[in-house]
Structure formats: structure tokens, C-alpha cells
Write a protein that binds this DNA or RNA. Structure first.
Lengths: 329, 329
DNA sequence: CATTTATTTGTAAACGATTACATACAAATT
DNA sequence: AATTTGTATGTAATCGTTTACAAATAAATG
């Protein structure tokens, strides 16, 4: 692979001139530009990002941190990030942290080392203090998950309000024994959604029964099914459930079906995230839609603004309750 | 961020010595090592990958090309690639090509420019001639999709045999009007699976009815549903369908349900890929499982072997027909 | 035509690491 | 004590760019 000097030699100019052609500097004569461009073609030359980045100390690469690739929840956000970034001359790289501090460190180092310019973190398990450190002199944005007490800018939805809206919907349908299938409450969104759940109960004068709250380890289908099994052992069974993720809801739906109950007649079910499968289940699933794609573009724009030296503020996005068959009356 | 010279100065040694400490060269005195390590800590120094890579012309970064993030098909393969790579000191970066030649080019350039060491391509729409060019002096492996006529090593399954196995299963259940919901036959796997479909018909003495073959634009649910609608207009309806992807099968299942037909009693259905949702549908879906994770690790090992200068051969992996409720008799 | 001004190009020093080679120093040998 | 040997460190070139600054060339002015 030829380098800039060989191109310069071939074209009979200096490497500086070649560089100027590459960077579309205005001071290059049409004639020399042609010579250089021809030489570039002849030698099949591609400028080395490595040399360029070293000199410019920027890479135009953005890192997107997600806990694991398997979660369909992230795909639309990523599409948004991707589209916006590419449009603005940045490429993104998806980084799976696996909630593994060592891997996480690799990615942090990529930023420290100028191999990447900034980070959009969607990892709820991210090491906040390290991220905070990094944020002192690097561009960082959090998406979906964030830390209420830190000042790293984020884009997210109002989880409490969303959960409240779900509950209101179920209560209006006449349910007064509503279960909550929540994930681990070490996650902020889980705590917030629980808050919304409890607030709705309180405001509508329904008692809070702790045995109707099931906390899962992760968001696998199995956990949703497991929750239903647990509830079925209760003396007084719930007639509806709000799962904080569509995957949990789909697992629950499966188990409800297995037990011969009809959804929504015998049991109503609401999920969260509006993943594409939620519209393919039988019955289709009522769920909360976040403006995923838009969250992605917003996060990307915030990051790029930071890179350009602007201050950015956190943003709360709207959400929407999508009512489908699983809660029809 | 401090650089190696500042560390050297702080420690009272030369930058060469610092570099030796960083690279664990054996010739460094314990005493100087300590001095250097202390200086590194004091200055909070992190070596720049940029400088290092430029000098060493290797980045220990691998690129994984996929057409889009949204397809759950890829997740397990990626996990395999990831695990193997990390274990061997490489990091992977996920690159969405969007079947966009320009984006594709960016990633190719990353390799040309030594920003990344090699590529695992899972993109069926990849520009083969460009990839071939790149493969002349760079490490490339194809996964799932490949080009029969090129010599880029690949890891894949025997699609024809898998399709044949599916058909045999359906035929044994007594079906003689079996539809094929295939994707665009510009893809190799689609052509191969069609071949298996036709071979089975022939060997079991069943007629090939072209109107029972539906080719889709993509793998969205809707396309599966659309296929069923199309078939329902036929004079003689199929009693079973083999969809070349679980997403298509799930869309088909939905539409079959909508039409009031019972699966598997009135209509049998087989998918492909064994995505996690295929076990959550009602009824659960018979499908073909590819050893995804293992394909990932294998592809990664092939790539890393190439990087170490070894020759590698293509590999065909086993597949497995997973019989579930959608084809019970 | 000589001089000034504007424009285009070249020179060389960064960026931050690694490493062949040279050198310094200590220990071992004569 | 002088010489040899071995080990630890330093010097400086290198990777491929970009960009102040200097230099050269062309155009404009008197």
C-alpha cells in the first residue's frame, strides 16, 4: 500500500501538496490537483487513518456501549445513532461490554487513546465512577439508562410516568389485582417504573401487595414464565400483569396460555418497548413504545455537539401506550 | 494526557526504557521498572494505541460486517466471535453495512489503513470483487454466506441438505402440497435451500408446482404473512410450508391463525434459524438450528490463524432439525 | 523593467509509540 | 590493572499524516 510520499513522487510534487489535495485545500492549482489525483489512482492510494488520526488526534469514530448484542431492545436506537452519525461524518462501532469491567476498560481506553472520539453508553451496569472520570475530558452521552446524581448528559424517557399510564389503563379496565414483573431494581428504570406502579395504586386507592411484585434476574422469556408460575401459587391470583419488558411479557403470555387461561379475557398483559415481535404474538401485546430511533439520533447529536465543544443538556423524550389485543375488554 | 516522554522524564529514564517496561521486555532492572511504574501511576499515563499501531501496523481489532443490527439471526454468531476473539487478545467491532456500498467502503478502508486487522463478513450483499481484492493482502473470513467461486475461506452449513431434511420430515408426515417461502434467490443460501426443496420433491416423486414457491424481498414478518395470503388464492392450497427464516415463519403463522386455521392440524409450518422467539410462539415452531455460537468461534479462529500467517480451509458445520409443535401429527 | 503583492508549492517539525544500534556500566577474566 | 564479556540504558530513525513557515513563482503595479 503506497503512502503519501510515493504519491508525491509519482506526481512530481511534495507530500504537503498531496495532503492539500486530499483535504481539499483551496490553494491548489487545478493542474497540480489533476496530477496528484492521477497519481493517487495509479498507485491505488488510500490515506492512512492511523497517521492522520495521530496527527489530528481525532478518529471520527464513536463507540456505542451495550451490555449485549442479543437484546432486540437496542436495535432501533442503534439505527438512529448510526444514521445521524454517518450523516455527520462519524462512524460508529458497537461494543458489547458483557457487563465485564475488563472489556469495558478496553473501550474506555480506546477513547483515552484517541482511537475513538466519544461514547454513547446504553449499559445500565456501566462503572459510573470510571465513566464520570472519562467524561471530565471526553465526550460522553448516556442513553436510556443514566445516573440521576451525575452530570453526564442523557436522553431517556420518563419511566415513572409511563408505568403510571400503563397502570391507569389496566385499572380503568376494571383490574384491581395487578402484578408487576420487574427487573432487578439495581437498575434505575426498574426503580422508576416501580414508583409509577405504586403511585397509580395509591392514587386509585388500591392496596399494594408485595407478593404481586416479582423481580427477575434478567429479561429472558423464562423469567416472564417463571413470574406467572409464582403468581399462580398465591391464594388470590392477579388478573393482570405489567411486565417491564416485552420479552418478559411474551414469556408470561406463553405460560398463561400453557395454563389454559385466555388473554385478555382471563388475564390482561402489558409489556414495554414495543419490540417487533410484540405485534406477532397471539394475541398481540399491549406495550409502551419509546421513540427509539429518535432517541438514537438525539443521543448522537448530543455527542457530536459535545465534540464540537458545545454544552448540551439532558433530554426527556415522549413515550406512548400502544393498546393491542392483550388488554382489550 | 501524558505521553511516553513525560513519563520518561518523570522517571529519569529514556522513553525507550519506558517502552520496554510497557512491553515487558526482559532486560529491565527491577529498580528502573519500579521507577517507571511509579511515574506511570503518578501521571496517570495510558499508552496511545494510535502511536503504537502506527509503528507496529497492527491494531488487534477485528471488524464484523453484518447487513443490519436488527436481525436476531446474527446475535449468537457474534457472541461466538466475540468470545473467541477476546480470549485471543483481539477486540471486535460490529459494523452495519446497510447494504450500502459507501459504508462498506469505510470499513474496507479501516482495514487497508491498519485501523483494523481483519474482517469477518456475514453480509450476503457484500461487494465480492472488492472483498476479493482486499483478501489479497488482508485477513478475511466469510461466515454463513460465501461465494462458491472465490477462494476466501468461509464457515457455513450445508443449506441444501438442511432444506432436504426439512422436506423429508414434512413429506413423511403425509404432506404432498408443500409451499416454499424463500427469500430473494440472489442469495446463495436461498438458491441452495431451493435446490434441497426441489431435490426432495423429485426423490419422493412429488410434482414441483411453481406457484407454491414465494420469493420475498426481505425477512420481515409481513412477508411471511403475505406469502400465506398469496397461497390462499390458489385453487389447490398447500397444507404445509417451509420458510427459510423463522421471522418469515412467524409472520406466516400469524396469518394462518388469523385465517382460522389450526397449526399443525390444518397447516404445518417449518422455519429456519431457531431464533429464541421460535420457542415462544403458539404453537412453538419446528425449525433448523445452525450451531451459531460455534460458527462464530470457528470464524474467529480462522481469521486469527490467517493473521498469524497460517493457511486456513473452509469449514462446513452440522445443522439440526428441531421438531416442535408446528409439525406434530 | 524593477518592485511589490498575491498565489502556489516545498521544507521540516510535529503527533506517540517501538526498536536496531550504539554506548555505558558493571562483573568476570586474565 | 587491563581486558573481555554481558547486561542495562540511551540515541535516533521510523511509521504516515498535517501544517506552520519559508521559498518560489506568477501577476500586478509604477
Amino acid at each position: 500500500m503506497a503512502n503519501i510520499h510515493e504519491v508525491a513522487k509519482q506526481a512530481g510534487v511534495s507530500s504537503a501538496t498531496v495532503s492539500r489535495v486530499l483535504n481539499e485545500a483551496p490553494t491548489v492549482t487545478e493542474k497540480t490537483r489533476q496530477k496528484v489525483e492521477q497519481a493517487i489512482k495509479q498507485l491505488n492510494y488510500e490515506p492512512s487513518m492511523l497517521g492522520r488520526n495521530l496527527r489530528n488526534s481525532e478518529s471520527r469514530l464513536l463507540l456505542v456501549l451495550i451490555p449485549n448484542f442479543s437484546n432486540p431492545y437496542y436495535t432501533e436506537i442503534i439505527n438512529g445513532i448510526e444514521d445521524y452519525s454517518v450523516e455527520h461524518g462519524y462512524n460508529i462501532l458497537l461494543c458489547e461490554t458483557d457487563s465485564n469491567p475488563k472489556r469495558e476498560n478496553t473501550f474506555f481506553n480506546m477513547v483515552k487513546n484517541k482511537l475513538a472520539d466519544g461514547i454513547i453508553s446504553m449499559d445500565p451496569t456501566v462503572n459510573m465512577s470510571k465513566l464520570q472520570d472519562l467524561a471530565l475530558d471526553h465526550a460522553i452521552v448516556m442513553c436510556s439508562e443514566y445516573d440521576e446524581y451525575e452530570r453526564i448528559p442523557y436522553v431517556a424517557i420518563d419511566n415513572e410516568a409511563a408505568a403510571y399510564k400503563v397502570m391507569k389503563h389496566l385499572i380503568r379496565l376494571g383490574h384491581d389485582q395487578i402484578a408487576l414483573i420487574n427487573s432487578d431494581e439495581k437498575f434505575l428504570y426498574a426503580r422508576q417504573r416501580r414508583k409509577g406502579y405504586e403511585r397509580a395504586l395509591e392514587e386509585f386507592g388500591l392496596p399494594l401487595r408485595n407478593e404481586l411484585i416479582y423481580n427477575t434476574q434478567n429479561l429472558d422469556f423464562q423469567e416472564g414464565a417463571q413470574a406467572i408460575r409464582k403468581f399462580s401459587q398465591l391464594e388470590r391470583n392477579p388478573t393482570a400483569a405489567f411486565a417491564v419488558s416485552d420479552t418478559l411479557a411474551i414469556g408470561a403470555l406463553k405460560e398463561v396460555n400453557v395454563r389454559g387461561l385466555k388473554v385478555p379475557e382471563d388475564f390482561a398483559l402489558v409489556g414495554f418497548d414495543n419490540i417487533s415481535f410484540s405485534n406477532m404474538t397471539n394475541p398481540t401485546l399491549t406495550t409502551v413504545a419509546q421513540p427509539m430511533y429518535q432517541m438514537g439520533t438525539t443521543a448522537a447529536s448530543m455527542l457530536i455537539k459535545q465534540l464540537q465543544g458545545q454544552e448540551v443538556d439532558s433530554i426527556m423524550m415522549d413515550h406512548e401506550l400502544i393498546i393491542r389485543e392483550s388488554t382489550l375488554n
